[in-house]
């Protein structure tokens, strides 16, 4: 039986994880603007509570799959921030060996089976992992993140249908950040809620959670994970949030009403968790401020260290297409 141990982590632990992810990405934003990041990067600033809340319900034997906006999905499972940053900055020792980049961060050692950049393309993959668990009865649960825009992709519907028909141990987590790239999701769906309102078509209960409340996410997902582990099938969860930045680091998101963005910053999940810690007496404001300063310093140091690292040998491009490390297609 794998994956039966749910992480015992209090709000303070959840907050620290969110904070690290926030400042990892904030640092990345700066590095991008300095022209140091290879290729695009899609930040999930404002969405950290979902990745962290979901990860906190998974055991080491459980699996998760994320999206091209997936730094948080990987880091929350325990992926090494230095190996991730090395990948993002095109340095030796990158988590995918320099072959994946921001959109394909993967850390199988931590149960994180990849970040996928074709919208919705990975949902059938997650279902396949859950199918394997049903066949092997290994007790593993697979969580799959995707955005609101994905609910208009055929692969989403095929995969959710199959998971429901086969009653597979998978938790679908829709991060509804209100925007399908540059377009408001409301403009491109005929229902109010992109995932929840589609759930009944597959015989599933609509489940909506405040995606900016890490404890709420944790509690709701924990129930879905239990249900999956019991053999009672999938859950399609919609976590409501807001993408505080643009679609990618290259997008200034000028198409949004500034008042809407200002209001969203007031619901910042990281600040919200800090406030909750002070309310409950688990931490003082001074303590959380000191923690913020420390985490920022750690990220600054990390960036310096990674920027000093060498770039990978170009010859590595010709290796690793096959699992034995070779790439030969003919003799």
């Amino acid at each position: 039986m794998t994956g039966s141990v749910v992480q015992d982590v209090g709000l303070r632990g959840l907050y620290e994880q969110m904070l690290r992810i926030r400042h990892f990405e904030a640092k990345l934003d700066v590095l991008y603007r300095q022209g140091r990041v290879r290729g695009p990067a899609h930040l999930g600033i404002g969405q950290e509570a979902i990745a962290v809340g979901v990860a906190s319900t998974l055991g080491p034997g459980d699996a998760s799959l994320g999206t091209y906006r997936g730094h948080a999905h990987a880091l929350a499972r325990g992926a090494d921030p230095e190996a991730v940053l090395r990948e993002l900055l095109g340095r030796e020792g990158g988590i995918c060996g320099g072959k994946g980049g921001s959109m394909h961060i993967t850390s199988v050692a931590h149960g994180y089976y990849g970040s996928y950049a074709i919208v919705g393309g990975h949902i059938p993959t997650a279902v396949g992992m859950a199918w394997a668990s049903r066949i092997r009865r290994d007790g593993r649960v697979t969580a799959c993140f995707f955005g609101d825009g994905t609910t208009n992709i055929g692969a989403f519907h095929e995969a959710v249908n199959l998971a429901a028909v086969w009653s597979l141990p998978v938790v679908f987590v829709c991060e509804n950040n209100q925007y399908m790239e540059y377009t408001p999701i409301a403009d491109v769906i005929p229902v109010a809620r992109p995932a929840a309102d589609r759930a009944p078509a597959y015989g599933l209960e609509p489940v909506v959670v405040d995606g900016n409340d890490v404890e709420a996410v944790r509690q709701t997902v924990a129930r879905a994970v239990e249900r999956a582990r019991r053999g009672d099938g999938p859950t399609l969860l919609e976590a409501t949030t807001y993408r505080l930045g643009g679609h990618s680091v290259a997008d200034g998101a000028a198409y949004r009403d500034p008042d809407e963005v200002s209001a969203a910053w007031l619901r910042d999940p990281v600040v919200k968790a800090a406030q909750r810690l002070t309310e409950t007496g688990d931490a003082t404001a001074e303590e959380t401020e000191a923690l913020v300063a420390r985490v920022k310093g750690e990220m600054d140091d990390l960036a310096v260290r990674v920027l000093e690292a060498p770039t990978p040998d170009a010859a590595a491009a010709w290796t690793g297409m096959w699992s034995d490390g070779s790439s030969t297609w003919r003799n």
């Binding site: 396949g128 992992m129 394997a132």
Partner: peptide, 11 residues
């Protein structure tokens, strides 16, 4: 996609 996931899981 299910074949891919099952292969990733070791089947």
């Amino acid at each position: 996609g299910a074949a891919m996931g099952a292969a990733a899981a070791g089947l």
